[in-house]
C-alpha cells in the first residue's frame, strides 16, 4: 500500500472516479494546465483531456453556476474554488440554487455537485487565503459539508461526495495538505458521509474536532483519558456518535479553527444541551479561533487554537 499525503490522496480519488465514471468532470481556475495552485489536480488534464478538466475564466459564481447546470443535465462536476476566502461570489449560486433545486422541483432535479475548496490558516498566505467559514454553509439546508483530517479519509470521503446525489462542500485544510502522510489504498473504498469517527477511545472527556484541528487535538490529549471524535461531516453531523460519547464521559470540549460566535461548535454544544444535558458533569467548553477578522501571518499562530489552549480547555472541564 502506498504512503501519501492529502494532496496525492485527493488527486487519486479524482483520478479513480474519473476513470470509473465518464460523467465526472472537473472545472475551476488553474485546475487544468497548472494542475491547481496546490497541484491537487495535477496530471488529470493530461489523462482526461481539456473537455473533462476545464480551466475556466476567473469567476467563482460562473464556476459554480455552470457546474449546477452540468449537474442538472446529468454530469457529476467537481468544481474547485481556489481558496475558501474567494467562495463568496458563488454563495448566491450555492444557497439559492444548488441547495434548493431538489426541493423546489420536488425531486425532479438534483445537483450532484462537489465544491472542493482549500481552507484555513497554515501556509503564511496573504489576506483572504486562510478563511474557515464552514458554519455559514452548515446553516443552509440542502447542502452537505465535509472536512477530512487525513489522507485516508480525504480519499474515501471525496469518493463518497462525488457519488452523493446532493451538493457537497468539501473543505481541504491547506495546513494538512502536505503535513501528514499515511497509507492510502489504491482502488475503491469509501468513507461514508454523515458518520463521525472515534479516533481514540476514552472515558473522562469527549473532544470533538475536525479538519486541521484534529492533529493539534491528538497532541493535546496525550496522557489524558479523552475520547476524540473526528466529525468529518459537519452537516448533517453524526449526533448519535457524539451523544453516545457524551453519555459515557459527561464532559465535552469542542475545537474549531473558525471564530467562536456562531461557529459550528455552537450547534454541537446546543445539540448536546438539548439531547444529552442530563449526562453532563459540567459546562461545555469551546476552544476556537477568536472573534476577529483573520489576521495576517504575523499573528495567525495566536489566532488559531494551539495545543496548549486545547489542553487548557480539557483541564477546565476536568475540574467538574
Amino acid at each position: 500500500m502506498a504512503t501519501m499525503n492529502m494532496v496525492h490522496a485527493i488527486n487519486l480519488a479524482l483520478k479513480e472516479e474519473m476513470e470509473r465514471d465518464k460523467n465526472v468532470v472537473i472545472l475551476g481556475e488553474d485546475v487544468g494546465r497548472d494542475g491547481g495552485v496546490f497541484r491537487v489536480t495535477e496530471g488529470l488534464m493530461d489523462q482526461f483531456g481539456e473537455e473533462r478538466v476545464m480551466d475556466t475564466p476567473l469567476a467563482e459564481s460562473g464556476i459554480v453556476g455552470t457546474a449546477i447546470g452540468m449537474a442538472v443535465y446529468g454530469l457529476r462536476p467537481v468544481a474547485e474554488i481556489q481558496f475558501m476566502g474567494f467562495i463568496y461570489p458563488a454563495v448566491d449560486q450555492i444557497f439559492n440554487h444548488a441547495a434548493r433545486i431538489r426541493s423546489r422541483s420536488r425531486g425532479r432535479y438534483s445537483v450532484p455537485l462537489v465544491i472542493r475548496t482549500p481552507y484555513g490558516v497554515g501556509i503564511k498566505s496573504p489576506e483572504h487565503h486562510s478563511e474557515s467559514s464552514e458554519a455559514h454553509f452548515c446553516h443552509m439546508p440542502g447542502i452537505k459539508v465535509v472536512v477530512p483530517s487525513s489522507p485516508y479519509n480525504a480519499k474515501g470521503l471525496l469518493i463518497s461526495a462525488i457519488r452523493d446525489p446532493d451538493p457537497v462542500i468539501f473543505l481541504e485544510s491547506t495546513r494538512l495538505y502536505r503535513m501528514i502522510k499515511e497509507e492510502v489504498p489504491e482502488g475503491e473504498y469509501t468513507v461514508p458521509l454523515g458518520k463521525a469517527r472515534i479516533v481514540q477511545e476514552g472515558g473522562q472527556v469527549t473532544v470533538v474536532a475536525w479538519g486541521s484541528m484534529l492533529q493539534k487535538t491528538m497532541k493535546a490529549v496525550e496522557g489524558a483519558d479523552a475520547e476524540v471524535i473526528d466529525l468529518m461531516t459537519l452537516n448533517p453531523f453524526d449526533e448519535e456518535t457524539v451523544y453516545a460519547s457524551v453519555k459515557k464521559t459527561g464532559r465535552v470540549v469542542i475545537v474549531h479553527e473558525a471564530p467562536k460566535t456562531g461557529g459550528f461548535g455552537a450547534e454541537i454544544s446546543a445539540s448536546i444541551a438539548e439531547d444529552a444535558m442530563l449526562y453532563l458533569k459540567g459546562p461545555i467548553k469551546r476552544v476556537t479561533g477568536y472573534d476577529a477578522v483573520l489576521p495576517l501571518p504575523k499573528l495567525e499562530d495566536y489566532y488559531m487554537p494551539t495545543v496548549e489552549r486545547i489542553r487548557k480547555g480539557i483541564d477546565e472541564v476536568m475540574q467538574y
Binding site: 459564481s61 460562473g62 459554480v64 453556476g65 455552470t66 457546474a67 449546477i68 447546470g69 452540468m70 449537474a71 442538472v72 443535465y73 446529468g74 454530469l75 462536476p77 449560486q93 440554487h97
Partner: peptide, 9 residues
C-alpha cells in the same frame, strides 16, 4: 449560468 452549464454538458 445553469443554462450555460447544461449547454456545456
Amino acid at each position: 449560468l445553469h443554462a450555460v452549464g447544461a449547454a456545456m454538458a
